[in-house]
């Protein structure tokens, strides 16, 4: 039963109000107040020019995009088969897989990070095993560098991809796959010509949501990364916390927010199309 417009708005009202109060108002206050400090529009523009095209910001933006892209790719490659298994699983197996994916979210970031240290550290479990079986002679550096950031972010973002893909895969009409098989398609062809295209909107949505989330990542790269693994959100934090240079932080925030909103607009369109298909 489709909700009337009014009912929908009424149901959304508390959430919207909360968002406006605890999110929009403070952000507006922060950005507005900080930029006002700079003075006129042309002065703001001058500062923006200086900030955004200075070496650090450019580097961080490059870093951010590169890391986000790499993580998104990895998450997709790992998440796709995982979601497929999940969409096929029933009963206990389904619950088990789902639990494995979601459970880590019930532990705090600190606990998770210490778990990573135990696992990935120089004297961590993985290095000990690899050294033990003689596969390596020197411990691998799996943490406090780009590898660590990628591992950590991939892990944290995986559920978003898996759950998005799961929804798309679950919605695929199994009879279409059977029909394709009946028309002479091999399992590989069924997958490539029917299953993949039918889940493509899910892939695009999953990629966008993962990428959007990855762009704003702060905690994981800060904890798992090395000296050079600075992402844009970390730079913003530095400007706020270390330099007390809030106008600069505000400008970077606007850039990040704009990019995010543009990507989100794509995401919204694609999920709508996915809905319409069904």
């Amino acid at each position: 039963m489709p909700l009337s417009r009014l009912t929908a708005w009424l149901l959304l009202a508390p959430t919207l109000l909360l968002l406006v109060l605890v999110f929009l108002v403070p952000i507006g206050w922060f950005i507005g107040g900080s930029l006002a400090e700079l003075g006129t529009l042309s002065e703001i523009w001058e500062e923006a020019d200086a900030v955004l095209f200075s070496g650090a910001v450019g580097g961080a933006i490059l870093n951010t995009n590169w890391i986000a892209a790499l993580v998104t790719l990895l998450v997709l490659l790992i998440g796709y088969p995982m979601s497929y298994a999940l969409s096929r699983a029933k009963g206990l197996v389904f619950t088990a897989i789902l639990l494995c994916i979601v459970l880590p979210y019930f532990t705090s970031t600190i606990v998770r990070t210490y778990a990573w240290m135990v696992l990935l550290g120089r004297n961590g479990l993985i290095n000990q095993i690899l050294l033990g079986i003689g596969l390596i002679n020197e411990p691998l550096q799996l943490m406090y560098n780009r590898t660590g950031v990628i591992i950590g972010m991939t892990y944290v973002l995986l559920p978003y991809m898996v759950l998005t893909l799961y929804a798309a895969m679950k919605a695929v009409d199994q009879r279409l796959l059977q029909a394709a098989e009946g028309m002479g398609a091999s399992p590989a062809t069924v997958f490539l010509k029917v299953f993949m295209p039918l889940t493509l909107h899910g892939v695009i949505a999953g990629v966008l949501i993962t990428f959007i989330l990855a762009l704003g990542f702060f905690v994981t790269p800060a904890l798992m990364g090395g000296p050079g693994d600075i992402m844009i959100a970390m730079l913003i934090e530095r400007e706020v916390e270390l330099t007390y240079n809030w106008p600069t932080a505000a400008l970077m925030t606007i850039v990040l927010l704009t990019v995010t909103l543009i990507l989100y607009a794509f995401y919204a369109r694609i999920s709508d199309q996915g809905e319409a298909r069904r």
């Binding site: 009409d173 009879r175 029909a179 098989e181 009946g182 028309m183 029917v194 039918l198």
Partner: peptide
Amino acid sequence: PRGRGLGMVFQNYAIFP
């Protein structure tokens, strides 16, 4: 199925969207 070379019309058409 793919080795049987049949033509098939399915109960719900199964047209690829």
